[in-house]
Amino acid sequence: MKALILNGGEDKSFQTVEAALLRDLEQRGLAVTALQMREMDIETCVGCFGCWIKTPGQCTINDAGRDVARQMITSDVVVYLTPVTFGGYSYHLKKVVDRFIPNILPFFRFYKKEIHHPQRYPNRPILIGLGILDKPDPEQERMFAELNLRNALNMEPPGFAAGVVYRSDSKDEISKKVVNMLDKAEVQNA
């Protein structure tokens, strides 16, 4: 079983949180890969829909974004680690999340009383959104939770969880929150 951490931090200040994630995922028997998105030269999606109607399932931009999309859909657990940015993901994380649309199909269908795209793959990863905030901010925390919920509606993961940690949290507090999130997303021991 594989886990993929996509670290969307602007600098190295997320290492404590990433380390807690790594430890807890490995303790559950998963082989973990952590990617530092700020270090990866990934073009942003150009909105051409080529990944749906020219090269179905594969982005037309031939760069590392393609490989991360493959790694994402072939993992069992994917963690979006990001500074909460105006309630959402940071640029460094979003540049690759936008490149995940090859992993869904172009067509429309009704799902939970809304129109969404069907899934391309029967096996999809559990999604975990872990945001980092300087201090409590109820409105941004609400948006971050809703964003992860809406992502789950569109990607239909077998399990998902979202939550935030604060920069002022101690290592123990961070560790507890991480364990709770993995439990909530039902990340089982491999």
Partner: peptide, 12 residues
Amino acid sequence: PLYIDSLPARLI
């Protein structure tokens, strides 16, 4: 445009 429930990356 809405991109994956949010803003396009470059706009962020």
